[in-house]
Amino acid sequence: MYLSYARNKHAGVIELPDGNILARTVVEEDFFAARVEITVSVPGLEIVSISASIDRCFSEACHRTVAPLADVTGLRIGPGIIKLVNQTTGGTNGCPRLADLILECCEQVILRFTLDPLKQILDKQGREMIDAYKVFLSRNPRLLNSCIAFAGGSPLREGLEVEDF
C-alpha cells in the first residue's frame, strides 16, 4: 500500500529578545505549501505583525488571499479569535488554509504559556498533583469542562464549580 496523500505541519514558538514571541507554522502537503509567522506582544497577547507566503498551491487565485492577512494585526489571542480570523482570512473569498495556520500559531502561543505550569504539576505525584491541578484550574477557569479530565466528576476539579468563577 502506498500513501495517496501526506501532510506535514509544524508550529514553533520562539521567545524574542524584546520579550515578545514569534510563532511560525509551516505546512507541506501534496498540492499546497505555505508558512505564516506572527509576532505576539507579551503579556497582552496581541498580534502585532504577520507575514505569510504560499509556496505551492492549486490555483493562482490562492495567491490573492495573502494580502488581506494584515487584517489580523491588532487581534488579541483570546475568546473570539477563531471567529475573527476565519472572518478576515478564511471563507469563500479567502483561504481557510491560511486562517488555519494563523490559528495554529495562536494555539501554540497558548500552549507555550501552559507548558511551564504543567511541568511543575507533572513533577508532583498523587494527592499533591491533584491539589496542584485544582490550583491550576482555579487560575485557568476557561479549562473547566474543556475535556474529560476537567469535566464535572473528575477528581482534578473536586470542589471546583463553573459558578465559582
Partner: peptide
Amino acid sequence: MLAFSRTKWVGVEKPAPDTYL
C-alpha cells in the same frame, strides 16, 4: 530558543476504491 514545538503529520491511504484510511 524554541520555546514550544508541535508537529502534526497525516498520511492517507486508499485500501479500497470506496475507503480512505
